[in-house]
Structure formats: structure tokens, C-alpha cells
Design a protein around this nucleic acid. Structure first.
Lengths: 326, 326
DNA sequence: CTGAAAGCGCTTACAG
DNA sequence: CTGAAAGCGCTTACAG
């Protein structure tokens, strides 16, 4: 492939001058500008971004670490992140951590070695300290690390409230919440707080059961319901699930066991991801997160952090989607 | 960050020797090996892969262009591709083309400028000639370009046959196939061939209607059914849909309009992607593509092409999944 | 407005 | 087994 040197020779100018054109430097006459442009055309020149990255000490690449791109929620998030980044001329290096400690650590290391300009962290398998030592622009999705690291999250506390209040408004007297692992400092866990407080305020009896966050598949959730949740079902009349896949698995379990939904048990999910948006049999009652907006803001925040050194957190609002399971 | 120069000084050896260690060159004594290792530890040294890429003329980065990462099928494909690449020490630069000509072209250009070692092409918005001029290791998903460019695809012809024969075996007399745009030279269109031939062999009346491939969303498909397909429904008793989202949209349409499925109309989908795997109300009858395997082989083929210059095509087998819509 | 030279952090013949 | 030097393809002060 042609290099800047070839172009310089072809155009009869110095390398420096060609570089000026590449960098939109204005100190360049129209005539030489044209000569260089023509030479580039003739040689089919493509600037070598890797070489440029080395001398400029910036790659214009963003690292993105997520649990699982095949999950409906993350697939949608990736798209919004990538397209926003692309519009600002950044590229995305994608990493599937599967919520595995080792994998996450080795991805972080890989991203450092490749000198990405910044990292979007949507996977949370490590302890907080591990993130503090990254020493690179970093934005997290849904997790608070410290005041120097901005996060983007949706308002899970309100989400929990909305879901719970809705169940109560529909007449439920005994509620259950199936949460993710509560030891993690993710904002998602504030859904459980919203649930709890709303139950207490309304003098409603409640239980909370934790599921594993590492396994996000339908089959894991279904099995979890069979082994752990099923014994609770006789005594409750409303369930707030921490995600839509789980909610749908619970719905299917109920149908199979002749437990009428919503008459006998009402179900509320969380996310309103692409799966639940498509699902019409039944339409799930759920709390909608603005997934596309979250992705856009994640990209935008990271790029602002890289370019302007600005840091700020964002908490986005959620809303109740009334379906047929309540 | 520490450089190879710092390490050399700290260890009291030359840069060349440190580089040897980095490249697993064996001509290095155990004692200096240890000295260098210790120095690296002390300085928390991370090799600069971008600098290395520049001198070695290989980035160990693969470009991946797909229509839409938020689509259930592609989300799953990405995961398999990325994880396989990762296991062989390659990284993935992800691009969402949205099946847009301009975007696809600009992504190809970007990947060239970033000197990726190869490209996996899962988006097909451009004319064949555009791909022939890429001059980089290239593997396509589901499209034949020429004999120098390997492809990975599943056996769509057999898939079309299986689906159609199944509908006939279930007693259908008047079939409809809703295909993607047939002008594209994708293997997916061989589903339509399999459909047609099987109908003819069995003396079954049939129609084929094309949908747009660029729009893969549920809402587009539903609307398409309302405007274009609905008028056919009175005269047919079986439909073979070219993907599961479309099949589900058709199912929902039928339910809403009191057309019994499978009694009055039988429906077969295609893909058995994550969405249809999860869907239990109803379980869709569909043709399963081995999505994870496709992703693994895409990565593996491209890496083989890069490292061993080997080229070969792969056609993977599909199977019928009997659900409740037939 | 333009060019020569040093440098970004590595690798790779070449010589010993 | 080890090192000095040139080179990968750019950018960036510096000087004019």
C-alpha cells in the first residue's frame, strides 16, 4: 500500500506537507493541496491509522466489555454504543466477559496493551479496586466505583417502586421479588430497595430471593424457578422479576402448572429489551429502560471524558409498560 | 507507561534482548530472561501492541461487519465469532452496517485504514465487485463472491426442502414462501429454490413473495404482513417464512384475526435463533441453523486464511425443529 | 506556507 | 547468546 512517502514524492512535496493535509492544518496553499490530493487519488492512498496512533498517542478505539453480546439487552446496547461512537469517529473493540473474573481481567489487560483511548465497562465481575487501578478513561454501565469514574444507569430505585406499586394497585397482597446477586454494588440492586420500601409503606408482606447474575439464559432461569421459586408460589400473588427473560420463564412455568396469569399470580418484568418488545403472546408488563439512550450516553460520556476531561454521572428515567401479565 | 527501553535499562540489557523475550525467541539465557522478567514486573510493563503492529505489519485485529448487532441472530453470531477469535489471540472491531451501502463502504475503508488482518463480512449491501477489490483476507457469511473468497453458510437449499416437505407431510395443499430479496446472491435465497422444487415435485400449488432484507425488525415484518401478505391468507394453508421473527409476526397476525394456527394455517420459520429458542408460547416450528458453529468457523476460517493462506468453503447442515405451529 | 530531523515503541536482519 | 542500527508510517516542534 502507498505510504505518505510515496504521496510526497508523487506530489513533489515533503512528507511534512502531506501530513499537514492529513491533519487539516490550514497552513497549506491551495495549489499544493490540490497536487497532494491528486497524488493520493492516483496512488489510492489510505492513511495508516496504526502509525498515526503511535505518534499521536491516541488510537480512536474504545474498549467495550460486556457479559454477553447474544443477550437481547446487550445486543441492543452494543448497537447504540457502536453507532454513536462511529458518528464521532471512534471504533469499538468488543469483549464478551461472560461475567468471568479471569476473562474480564485479561480483557482489561488486552485493552491496555492495545492502548484504547477509553473503556466502557458493562461487566462487573471484579472487585472495585481492580477498576480503580485501570488508569484510563473509564465509564461504567450501572455501577458506582468512585467519584472519579462516571457511570450511566437508569433509575432502578424508581423502577422498583413503579413495579411494586403497580402490583399493589392491581390488588396483590403477598409479593415476591427475584433479584440479582445483592452483594454487587450495581444500581440494578436498587430495584430491590424500591420493592422493599414500597411493600413496607403499603403494609404488604414480601420476600426477596436472589438469583445468580452470571447466568442470564432462559434455561438457567427456568431451572432456577423449578428448584427455588416454585415452593413460594402457593403463598404469593404477585412477582416482580429483575429482568424480562426471568419474567417470561416464570410466566411459562405458571402456564404449564395451571397457575393462571394474571388472575392468580401477576408478573412484572424489567428491561423491555428487544425480546420483550417482540413478545405479544402475552405482552409482558414490565419496566422499560431507555436502552438506546443508555448506549448513546455511554459512548458520549466516554468520548467527552477522553476529549474534554469532563466527568459526570447520568441516571435515566424508566417507565411502566402495562401488558397482559398484570 | 514503561517502554521496552525502560525495561532494558532496568534489566541492564539491550532493547533487542528484551524484544527477544517478548517474541519468545529462544536464544536467550535463563539468567537474562529472569533479569528482564523481574524488571518488567517492577515497572508494570505492558507491551505496546500498536507499536508492535506497526513494525510487524499485523494488528491481530479482525474486522466484523454485520447488519445489526441487536438482532437476535447476529448477537449470537458475534459472541461465537468474538470468543473464538479471542481464544486465538485476535480481537474484534465491530461494525453495524444496517445494510446501508454508504455505511458498509465507509466501514470497509475504516478497517483498511486500521490495517485489520482480515474481515468477516456478514452484511451484503454492495455489489460483488466492491468486495473483490478489498485486497485483504476476507470471509463472508452466507454469500458467494468468487472462488478466491471463502464463505461459511448453512445448507439453505436443504433447509427450504425440509421446511416445505414438512408442511406437505402435515397435509398442506397451497403453500406460500416469504423470502428475502431474491436479487442478492446470498445462499439464504436457496431456501426459495428448495421450497419451489419441493412444491413442484409434490404437485403442490405455491406462491413466493419477497420482503426487504434491510429491515429485520418485528414491526416491519408485521406491517409487511398487514399490507402485502394478508390478502393471500384466505387461499393458502401453509407458510414457510425465511426467518423466525417474520414467522412469529405472522403467527401473531393470525391469532389476532382469528385464523387458527396450526389448524387453519401452518407456519414454519427459519434460524432457531435465541428469540425463537426462548419462545414457548407457542414453540415455533422452524429450521435450526447451527449459529454458534457458524460463528466459530467464520473466525477459524479467517484466521487460517491469514496465517496459512488456506481457503475453503463450508456449508453446514440444518435440521427441522418441530414446534406447535405445524 | 514549507521542509529537515527527531521521535512514537516496537522488530528484524546483520554482525559478532 | 547478545547488541547496534535501520526501519515500520506517521506527527510535531523548530527553523526559515
Amino acid at each position: 500500500m502507498a505510504t505518505i512517502k510515496d504521496v510526497a514524492k508523487e506530489a513533489g512535496v515533503s512528507i511534512t506537507t502531506v501530513s499537514r493535509l492529513l491533519n487539516n492544518n490550514n497552513y497549506i496553499s491551495d495549489s499544493t493541496r490540490k497536487k497532494i490530493r491528486d497524488a493520493m487519488k492516483r496512488l489510492d492512498y489510505h492513511p495508516h491509522q496504526i502509525a498515526r496512533a503511535l505518534s499521536k498517542k491516541q488510537t480512536h478505539i474504545l474498549g467495550l466489555i460486556l457479559p454477553d453480546s447474544s443477550h437481547s439487552f446487550f445486543g441492543q446496547l452494543i448497537k447504540a454504543i457502536e453507532m454513536t461512537a462511529q458518528s464521532k469517529d471512534y471504533k469499538i473493540l468488543l469483549c464478551n466477559s461472560l461475567n468471568d473474573k479471569e476473562k474480564e481481567l485479561s480483557y482489561i489487560n488486552m485493552l491496555k496493551e492495545n492502548r484504547v483511548d477509553g473503556i466502557i465497562m458493562g461487566s462487573h465481575a471484579l472487585d472495585l479496586d481492580a477498576y480503580k487501578t485501570i488508569k484510563k478513561p473509564l465509564v461504567t454501565f450501572d455501577r458506582y466505583i468512585d467519584d472519579t469514574i462516571p457511570y450511566v444507569a437508569s433509575d432502578s430505585y424508581t423502577g422498583g417502586q413503579l413495579a411494586t406499586q403497580h402490583l399493589i394497585d392491581q390488588g396483590c397482597k403477598q409479593l415476591l421479588h427475584i433479584s440479582g446477586p445483592l452483594k454487587l454494588s450495581t444500581f440494578a440492586n436498587r430495584r430491590a430497595d424500591g420493592f422493599k420500601l414500597t411493600c413496607i409503606e403499603n403494609h404488604i408482606a414480601y420476600d426477596i430471593i436472589e438469583s445468580e447474575y452470571t447466568k442470564l439464559s432462559y434455561s438457567y432461569f427456568y431451572q432456577f424457578i423449578e428448584t427455588t421459586i416454585s415452593s413460594y408460589l402457593h403463598k404469593i400473588d404477585g412477582v416482580f422479576c429483575s429482568n424480562d427473560i426471568l419474567a417470561y420463564a416464570l410466566y411459562v412455568y405458571c402456564i404449564k402448572h395451571n397457575i393462571n396469569v394474571p388472575e392468580r399470580i401477576k408478573i412484572v418484568g424489567y428491561d423491555f429489551c428487544r425480546f420483550s418488545r417482540m413478545l405479544k403472546t402475552p405482552r409482558l408488563t414490565t419496566i422499560a429502560q431507555p436502552i438506546d439512550l443508555i448506549g448513546q450516553i455511554l459512548s458520549k460520556s466516554l468520548i467527552d471524558l477522553i476529549e474534554k476531561k469532563e466527568t459526570y454521572n447520568q441516571q435515566l428515567s424508566v417507565k411502566l409498560i402495562k401488558g397482559e401479565t398484570t
